[in-house]
Design a binder for these strands. Sequence first.
DNA 1: CGGAATATTAGACCGATCGTCTACAAAATC
DNA 2: GATTTTGTAGACGATCGGTCTAATATTCCG
Lengths: 219, 219
Amino acid sequence: MPVGSATGPAASPPMRRKPGRPPRVDATRDTREALLRAGLGVLTEKGFVASGLDELLRRVGVPKGSFYYYFDSKEAFGAALIERYAAYFARKLDRHFLDEALSPLARLQAFVDDACTGMARHAFRRGCLVGNLGQEIAALPEAYRESLRAVLADWEGRLAGCLEAAKEAGELAASADCARLAAYFWTGWEGAVLRAKLEGGERALRLFAEGFIATLPRR
Amino acid sequence: MPVGSATGPAASPPMRRKPGRPPRVDATRDTREALLRAGLGVLTEKGFVASGLDELLRRVGVPKGSFYYYFDSKEAFGAALIERYAAYFARKLDRHFLDEALSPLARLQAFVDDACTGMARHAFRRGCLVGNLGQEIAALPEAYRESLRAVLADWEGRLAGCLEAAKEAGELAASADCARLAAYFWTGWEGAVLRAKLEGGERALRLFAEGFIATLPRR
DNA sequence: CGGAATATTAGACCGATCGTCTACAAAATC
DNA sequence: GATTTTGTAGACGATCGGTCTAATATTCCG
């Protein structure tokens, strides 16, 4: 998956000073950044199709013209969101799965706890961007399909690494197929997130995570 | 969940003869029926929001006036679809889970095989209506939430029954919590269906089903 | 057999909202 | 201070869900 260029400058490190309109009265607010942030909120809640540009724009307080200055189309905007979400999530996974302070399986549990807290923070209205867009893939730009698959594959790799560590730590049977287990986890996890959203509670998240961890091959 | 009245007459058993326009040249085609059938196809593929009435109407070859004669609104139409899908799926589950010719766990496997075949028949474009609508629940009529939860609860009950039978048949440990296992299954299964749709293949379905069945507590 | 009643079709129409695009204003640059 | 770059502003056409009136087909009832 092509990466990097579309996300654009992060505005912090050495880069050409912005020439156009001032950095707005509110210095912390880069328009493009604000659009992406708000877009993530709206799309993780309602998906792509149901998210109207007008509402997003009103929310951010930006006119339509600006949106189409920063993004070629809603499709391009969605692609940027997928990329950004993937990066955000990869950081989160690394933070947990590579945490040497915890045993490998405890790291997975920590991720689950984190996810529960995260969903609770938004009253279980927001789900997973990948799950949301994946569900409506038939109504989406075909290019999204491969991106979403790639994101899932990436998560699988990171979890598989954690499971390998569990193997070395003796928490997991040496015969375990970590890649397969990781694929199994994320598949079910997406279902759990969907259900947690539907039920408005963390029950499904806990239920799935506990079932998964409890049935891991121990020896 | 209220049931029955909204679905309307099925046109087969004793009921007042239709007075209006003839049963159309094509006798097999009741307009309302055709709308529901096509609606199921469209909504399982693209979800609720992305499915426009106009496209559906064009597809069925029915004018808007007819649609609003049979249904009060798009919301009512969706509710009828949920009801109908639930009934359709309940029949399917019973057909498998109550099949005395197979051992209980073999019945579950048969359902999985059936689902794979079913998804393949539509080239993995159509998913589960409950999953689709559940995912976009934030953008849907609030009344749908309870309906969808109820459908899931119903499926859980039916699967739990099958698992209880497995227990009696000695295929499952007596200590197994069937209700919990059933909830776990459907949670993950929805994720698997989503992913199968995303990947355009049955891999996720097989992966999840095999993982689930293989880790069932045997004794 | 004929007119009233009912069931259904037909599609024009409306306000809202979709995504796009053109025109313009403000800073920076030379 | 003219030009270029950067960003803002909102008009625009298409389409959406939903409503409504009119036309038509059939049955009902006398």
